[in-house]
Design a protein around this nucleic acid. Structure first.
Length: 829
DNA sequence: CAGGGGCGGGG
DNA sequence: GTGTACGCCCCTG
């Protein structure tokens, strides 16, 4: 019979001499099924310099005793593959079970025969070879099995195929979150401290909210979702039952790989609870233990997505957030922050005032619901990465860019009959880590306030250079193009001009796909009318984002020391070409009569001067005429004013530090450290105001404002709140050898009976008086209005925030901060 | 300025 | 899991 389904979680199982891949899947009627499909493990070996008769005889009789099952070679064949541009014959050697691959290949290597693709996960191997993409509609022919011990029906597939590209986006998600007993601030110790409550959040089959919190302390409350049980043991049993009853496809948490699941696992062991949550009755696997950094937690047949991992590794790079905390991420992606409570009180409340526990239950549920919403929102992106790279979502969201790129290349390698080069060993990695290359070109700006700035940039500069110049390890120093032009600035480097090679062709495919996709999105947006279109657009945008990230990571991948297709010459050539293109662009702009004021990597800023925008645009067209491949210079914008400041204590212009204002009045700030934590609110506020006024050509007004603030400061009129400085305590107080103001205040807090552990952010204000700064640092509650040291705030907060900006316009610090508050060092001590 | 050590996320 | 471990920032010598 034939079956249609969406596979979402993968595993394999050895039965006797056969190995089966298990594809946990959803049928179109939303029921689950486990598809079983046989596949044989194998690896490759080099034929070079091998006495084939002797080698084959040795393979035939090879048996290695290891653990329970002897490892053996079952068959081999000769096959042509391309390795780093060279077409050669290899042995494809099949073995009797997956773990025999490392065992046998190690032995073969001992014989002096190089082996390849011996460290590829078996499920990955299967998906790639069969061309199966997770979360995409799949067909199989075969029959249901009777005898299997699984929570879901098992279907033995003879044949399995994907004809459609249809992805499934509506998965049944359950979010979980735990709160634990932490008597000391910040203490996390699963060996000692119990879990106090567990929250669940999801949507049931009717689309109705599913909310639940379980705890094991009796107290009065008004929560309809709260369930109180006898003890931690009962709570863990209920945890299991609730998951079984809800029957999620996806279980999600925030840092659940490294916290929730390892913690639950440890407590279950302690309480003798068997967490046999897997669809094959296997137990929760919490790989790490809590102290462990990159552990993974797994339940067979349920896809565990740790949203935090996906955001940290992949999605968060474009977000402008200071930390990947659930609070910061929710604010950025969902638009609302957590309702904060002081978790430090939980242990105390639990022990002494259980009537106040309701707040903590709400908080617990809120974390689960935010995690659910984040997961729900990001599912299209995770699904798109999955369908692009065609590996299990579980693995993909836990990868960093370099591995995403590598796995994409390996997917493409199948169709090109390309063999993956081996991963570097320890010594090779060490050698690679010593090497470095020259990076991008940055034009040193002359400090000043400029008008009518036109900004151009090269669209996807590095990817288009790599494809336009056929840059890759296979085409590097080919024998046929020695006499063709070499890489600028790199006289010994050249790439094949005659034949398109593997790496750049893979990248080019990505770029083309993205261009097509962008057109499609544009088209759809024009005619968009219903909700379905909107969802469709969201999916296509997620796909476009995945393509963009992947394409942009190729350059970094080529220079990444852990890469299989490592090629530092390729990375160096990419930046060399980039420097050349941007410098040529600058030259040509100047020749055309434009003044260039700044350039960085792929962008070029020039002044319109007496010319009109059309002339600038025809300059751009000129440039584009000469660019090879898909390279293109684009118009980024015309900015009425822009500000470039000087390096501290120097005439030189600071690189990567400027501010622009658009015609619409939108301000774009780059590189100004206006969000440094150890700046007061006052400094941040004044800096923003001054930048805005200067860019609006209201310099006088800006100066006036600064003087106003100085006056207010001196009069003692500035509210204390704006003057609070914050610094984190990073270690035991006794361990500090140099006592900064924050350490001194931390000590004061201890004297008052507060506990200050590493991680605490100490707030303080500097007050008037004599002596060292630290002796004048006070906790805000101990400072009365106007008691602050205005000289300190002028010198250490206001001046650093605005002087470089106003210096550009000819104002010295004395002009701004006038004679009565001398700010020279001589006067300070 | 190099190299070691600690931390991130979570309570 | 066809195992073995990241990368940045801060501080110290």
């Amino acid at each position: 019979m034939e079956l249609q389904f969406y596979p979402y979680d993968f595993d394999y199982k050895v039965e006797g001499e056969k190995t089966f891949i298990l594809l946990f899947s959803k049928l179109e009627n939303e029921k689950k099924v486990c598809i079983k499909n046989e596949y044989k493990p194998y690896f490759y070996a080099s034929l070079e310099g091998v006495d084939q008769r002797l080698f084959e005889a040795k393979l035939k009789s090879l048996t290695i005793q290891t653990g329970a099952k002897p490892a053996k070679v079952t068959s081999w064949e000769e096959i042509e593959k391309e390795l780093l541009g060279q077409k050669k014959l290899f042995y494809k050697i099949s073995v009797n079970y997956p773990k025999a691959v490392p065992v046998i290949s190690r032995e073969v290597q001992e014989w002096g025969v190089e082996c390849y693709e011996k460290d590829i996960l078996f499920t990955h191997r299967y998906l790639r070879d069969k061309g199966i993409t997770p979360m995409v509609l799949t067909k199989a022919t075969g029959k249901y099995l009777e005898e299997e011990m699984m929570r879901v029906p098992v279907f033995l597939a003879e044949e399995i195929i994907q004809e459609s590209k249809q992805t499934k986006e509506d998965w049944k998600i359950l979010a979980i979150d735990i709160e634990t007993y932490a008597p000391k601030r910040g203490e996390i110790n699963p060996k000692k401290n119990p879990i106090l409550m567990i929250a669940f959040y999801g949507l049931d089959d009717q689309g109705k909210e599913f909310r639940k919190v379980i705890t094991w302390k009796i107290f009065k409350h008004n929560l309809d979702y709260l369930e109180i049980v006898k003890d931690e043991f009962e709570m863990l049993e209920r945890f299991k039952e609730i998951i079984w009853a809800y029957d999620p496809d996806i279980i999600t948490g925030y840092f659940s790989d490294g916290f929730d699941f390892p913690y639950i696992h440890e407590r279950a062991e302690k309480n003798n609870v068997k967490l046999d949550l897997g669809l094959d009755h296997s137990e929760l696997f919490a790989g790490s233990g809590v102290s462990f950094q990159d552990g993974e937690s797994k339940i067979k047949g349920i896809l565990h997505l740790d949203v935090f991992k996906f955001i940290r590794n992949i999605f968060g790079k474009d977000l402008k957030i200071e930390s990947y905390s659930l609070d910061a991420v929710s604010e950025e992606l969902l638009g609302h922050r957590k309702h904060q409570i002081d978790l430090n009180n939980l242990a105390q409340v639990w022990d002494k005032e259980p009537d106040k526990l309701e707040e903590f239950c709400k908080y617990n549920l809120q974390d689960a619901s935010l995690t659910f919403k984040l997961c729900d929102k990001l599912i299209p992106d995770m699904v798109e990465f999955t369908s692009l790279i065609a590996l299990p979502t579980f693995d993909l969201i836990r990868m960093k860019f370099s591995r995403l790129v590598q796995n994409y290349i390996m997917k493409r390698a199948i169709g090109h009959d390309v063999l993956a080069p081996n991963k570097p060993g320890r010594t090779e990695i060490e050698r690679r880590m010593e090497e470095s290359i020259q990076g991008a070109f940055v034009y040193e700006p002359t400090p000043g306030l400029y008008e009518d700035i036109v900004v151009f940039d090269f669209r996807s500069l590095y990817p288009t250079i790599i494809t336009a110049h056929n840059i890759g390890p296979e085409s590097f120093r080919c024998s046929c193009c020695k006499d063709e032009p070499h890489v600028p600035d790199r006289e010994n480097y050249w790439f094949c001009k005659k034949e398109r090679r593997f790496i750049p062709s893979v990248l080019e495919e990505l770029i083309i796909k993205r261009v097509e996709l962008k057109n499609k999105i544009k088209e759809l947006k024009k005619h968009q009318n219903d909700e379905k279109d909107e969802r469709n657009i969201r999916i296509l945008e997620a796909r476009s984002y995945a393509l963009k990230i992947l394409a942009n990571s190729f350059y970094g991948y080529l220079g990444f020391y852990g890469a299989r297709w490592y090629c530092l010459e390729c990375a160096a050539s990419t930046t060399a070409y980039a420097r050349n293109y941007i410098k040529k662009t600058i030259e040509k702009a100047e020749k055309s009569g434009f003044q260039v004021i700044y350039a960085d990597t792929d962008s070029c800023f020039l002044l319109l001067g007496e010319k009109c925008l059309d002339e600038a645009m025809s300059f751009m067209d000129e440039i584009n005429k000469d660019l090879p491949g898909r390279m293109e210079l684009e118009f980024e914008g015309l900015f009425p004013r822009g500000l470039f400041v000087a390096l501290k204590g120097s005439e030189k212009g600071a690189k990567k530090k400027y501010a622009l204002i658009s015609k619409e009045g939108k301000i774009k700030i780059t590189g100004f450290e206006s969000v440094r934590r150890n700046w007061s609110a006052l400094a941040k506020e004044v800096q923003r105001t001054v930048l805005r006024l200067v860019l609006q050509d209201k310099v006088e007004e800006a100066v006036k404002q600064v003087k106003e603030v100085v006056k207010d400061l001196k009069k003692g009129n500035v509210s204390l709140e704006k003057l609070i400085l914050k610094t984190q305590i990073t270690r035991e107080l006794s361990q500090y050898s140099s006592i900064g103001p924050h350490v001194k205040v931390a000590n004061d807090l201890v004297k008052k009976g507060f506990e200050v552990l590493p991680g605490t952010v100490v707030e303080y204000i500097i007050v008037k008086g004599s002596g060292l700064v630290r002796e004048r640092a006070r906790m805000p509650s101990e400072v009365s209005e106007g008691e602050y040291d205005c000289d300190y705030y002028i010198k250490n907060q206001l001046i650093p925030a605005v002087s470089s900006i106003l210096a550009v316009l000819g104002y010295s610090e004395e002009d701004l901060f006038d004679e009565s508050s001398q700010t020279g060092l001589g006067n300070f001590f």
